[in-house]
Design a protein around this nucleic acid. Sequence first.
RNA 1: GUGGUUGUAGUUCAGUUGGUUAGAACGCCUGAUUGUGGUUCAGGAGGUCGCGGGUUCGAGUCCCGUCUCCCACCCCA
Length: 456
Amino acid sequence: MSEKPTLPKGTRDFGPEIMVKRNFIFNNIRLVFEKFGFMSLETPSMENLNVLTGKYGDEGDQLLFKILNSGDYLSKTNQEDYNKGAKEMLSKISKKGLRYDLTVPFARYVVMNQHNITFPFKRYQIQPVWRADRPQKGRYQEFYQCDADVVGTSSLICESEIIQMINEVFQKLKINDYTIKINHRGILTGIVELIGAKGKEADFFVAIDKLDKIGFNRVLEELSSKNFSSDSLNKLKPFFDIKSDINGKITFLKNVFSANSSGYKGVEDIEAILNYIASSGVESSHLNLDFTLARGLSYYTGAIFEVKVNNSSIGSVSGGGRYDNLTGVFGLPNVTGVGFSFGVDRIYDVMEELDIFPKETTSSTEVLVTNFDNVSEKHAIKILSSLRIAGIKSEIYPESVKLKKQMNYADKKNIPYVLLIGEEEIKNQQYTLKNMNNGSQNKLPLDEIIKTLANH
RNA sequence: GUGGUUGUAGUUCAGUUGGUUAGAACGCCUGAUUGUGGUUCAGGAGGUCGCGGGUUCGAGUCCCGUCUCCCACCCCA
């Protein structure tokens, strides 16, 4: 009895034609990370549960995949544990879990290797992460993150370089219409203090983060249901009525926060980051200072950012920010750092939706060498070696079947050239090179063929 | 985790109040063309109707369960 196989929820296979496109994204991200001085790091897929739990809030803990202990995992439990419920039972039957993100494993690595690391430490990490979330479009249970973090310096040059890296990656991917939202935890704290709602930061962040989606009025409704006074809500209005550009917003905030230290610090940071970007000579037209950006409740303490591709149904494709005490929970306090992450799966979905993958990424082989019969086959293999020595991606059709079938193979694989090697070609030492895009073909000696293909 | 929706050929989808042998388009294979792909024409293969159970003389169609996909929350890349 054979059973039809299926994939676990929220996971996917990546076939060759998909991998070509995914690698196009990975390669460009890796290239940019390395260009900015980041070094590669990999950590295990699984971590001990005590490393992972408690770092992402209650919500996050629920989304952790836990790994059942090996062997008879019930041997150390009894009826009493069972009665205490799932939470109590968990610690007896599971010690490990799959990583939920790359930042916490990175923090663990920094703490464990603190005496070997030269600070500031710049690392990038491109690996899958797992979340037991309910899947939706652009939400998977297994997906890749591409993180770059700098720890051991509070310099705002790092923030400005993150903006530059985002710009450079998107430029390489030919994604033109996107917005980098930037905000600062200090500004958010300042706003909460100014409207007289100190202590209610958590509720405020959750509500304000939805402004894009549900509109200002419904945000106000949600806030008043969380016991924000109408006086508070009135004081909030000016922050969201403002319609000026980024510099206008900064002037506005400096004025408002003249007597509020955390708010003022936030504006100063943003201003400094903008100045660094200006000094680099890189354009910053995609930047937008957005007071509604809150990025959950996690470990961020300074500047925060998030990237959304416009005119796309997919949510944010990149995000990050500065954290002051990420390694504190592992016993190493006062390590400041800043980092961000690209979501490759979502970038892929966006590029597919907008249909902007460059055509050349869909092909890998540059030339197919035909296979006529046993005699020409031997000659063709020799030619094939010469092509490969010249660094040209090439393959021979492994069977001497009908030419029609071989041509069709090249067509389906999007191979731009076919090299025909038959009796006549071998006799004249001139081989027929066919351009599959326009159908033209001519007879050339081997060195001419290599020249043509190398320039392609 | 809560509520809802979907599933039929490789793909996108039809399928009447439950009624013989479940269809189309595209794709795939073969031939027209034994040294030329993308166009055209002719022919062909391909389905346990997501899976399991139930109602019925009879189920792709109705009922229950389950899995998956997608959507809204929650949260997030």
